[in-house]
């Protein structure tokens, strides 16, 4: 049984990374924020009385399911939108263009500066852009396994798949990342464990 302080400490320790997870997946800051808030509320409401040691895995599972729910809802919305799209004016084309521009800005291909901090930011932008290019399941497995530090079994539980699938996703994600980064002049050296 956990206290409110334990839950608060846990959420404070994971909220930023959870936001980044969601942002990588949905590529929309507002939607990412909504997803994290929804995941935190679900954890508190449904599992707030569980032992604090169970929070990390429960939260990751909830977060990943909430991201998937977001895509399902988006798919339904898009289907509805496409039904009525023939009645709209050509303005909808402009909206698509605007989104494309916004997405490019997110990729943040900023000009290089001589400062180390700026170089670091540029490197991060390249890595994040490469992460965004990964298929969703591969990115999910990669981030849970290598960033969150979950083991294969825990990652499988969080993703709702088998350990074998996790290994496959991680292996493919690493290979794809290495290939994308190689094109940008970054040599990814990965010692798998």
């Amino acid at each position: 049984m956990s206290t409110s302080v334990q839950l608060s400490d846990f959420l404070a320790s994971v909220e930023r990374r959870a936001y980044k997870h969601a942002a990588y997946a949905v590529r929309d800051e507002q939607a990412a924020m909504d997803i994290v808030q929804e995941a935190m509320i679900k954890l508190a409401q449904r599992y707030g009385d569980k032992p604090a040691a169970e929070f990390p895995l429960l939260f990751q599972r909830i977060l990943q399911n909430t991201i998937r729910d977001h895509f399902r809802r988006q798919k339904v919305r898009n289907a509805r939108f496409s039904l009525f799209s023939s009645f709209t004016s050509p303005q909808s084309e402009d909206e698509v263009d605007a989104l494309d521009i916004l997405q490019d800005e997110d990729n943040a291909s900023q000009p290089a500066t001589p400062h180390a901090a700026a170089a670091n930011r540029q490197l991060l932008a390249l890595v994040e852009a490469a992460l965004r290019q990964l298929p969703p399941r591969q990115r999910e497995a990669f981030l849970l396994r290598y960033w969150e530090g979950l083991d294969t079994a825990e990652t499988a539980t969080a993703m709702g798949c088998t350990g074998g699938s996790v290994k496959t996703h991680c292996s493919r994600a690493t290979a794809t990342l290495a290939r994308i980064l190689k094109q940008k002049g970054i040599d990814l050296t990965w010692a798998s464990n």
Partner: peptide, 29 residues
């Protein structure tokens, strides 16, 4: 690098996250 990016979130996002956390804590089972 990823940790660094998570720690360098814009302050507006950090504030909204803490508001969301407090809202979640109020609904703790």
């Amino acid at each position: 690098l990823l940790d660094d990016s998570a720690h360098r979130l814009p302050s507006a996002v950090a504030v909204r996250l803490s508001v969301a956390r407090r809202a979640a804590l109020q609904q703790q089972a």
